[in-house]
């Protein structure tokens, strides 16, 4: 079982991140996923979060308790949610938007310049898809195929291609980072 929290500020597509990932996992990866989100004024600006519980068997408790993965796309979200990330957990941060505390080795940190990548692809709105790609690579929680199948109803048709590009960009960046960490010398060479 894996507990995931996506967090950031309103407008970054935080809820969409969990929706796309949850749909991909539960419909196309043959696993169970339950998604919950924050409601009320906070979902319309300020810090917001969405949660995903992923399991090989039916999810019983629908909320995250001790997240194994935290995606933090804003400083406020990072400050608020980083302390509750489980020891050894995976922390994905938007490196240009989050100033981190010194790394104590408590969690595994994966920084990604998602907004910059998205802007390079033409629109910062694609940042959440860069994040999902990066997330898919480093967590193996969801397969790229499943995400691509899940996308059509969840992003506007005219942006489908760009969103897939954003996903691929994030996914490749994540895989490169993993490869580099696995054998840093080779990567340098």
């Amino acid at each position: 079982m894996m507990e995931v929290r996506f967090s950031g500020f309103g407008g970054q597509g935080i809820v969409r991140c969990a929706l796309i990932t949850g749909k991909a996992i539960s419909l196309y990866d043959d696993k169970f996923a339950t998604m919950t989100q924050s409601f009320g004024p906070e979902a319309r600006g300020g810090a917001c979060s969405s949660q995903l519980v992923v399991s090989e068997t039916r999810v019983l408790y629908p909320y995250v308790t001790v997240p194994g993965v935290l995606v933090a796309l804003s400083q406020e979200a990072y400050n608020k949610y980083e302390p509750e990330l489980g020891n050894g957990g995976i922390l994905i941060v938007e490196q240009d938007l989050v100033k981190q505390k010194p790394d104590t080795g408590r969690v595994q940190i994966f920084p990604v310049p998602a907004t910059r990548f998205a802007e390079e692809l033409g629109n910062r709105l694609f940042a959440n898809l860069v994040v999902i790609g990066f997330f898919a690579a480093v967590t193996k929680c969801v397969t790229p195929d499943a995400v691509k199948k899940a996308l059509p109803e969840l992003v506007p048709g005219r942006f489908l291609k760009a969103n897939i590009q954003a996903f691929d960009k994030g996914y490749a960046f994540g895989n490169d980072m993993l490869a580099e960490r696995a054998s840093p010398k080779e990567a340098v060479a």
């Binding site: 969990a18 949850g22 749909k23 169970f32 996923a33 339950t34 998604m35 919950t36 989100q37 629908p62």
Partner: peptide
């Protein structure tokens, strides 16, 4: 609210 707002298959 929990069941109403949570997404599942």
């Amino acid at each position: 609210e929990t069941v109403g707002h949570m997404h599942e298959k």
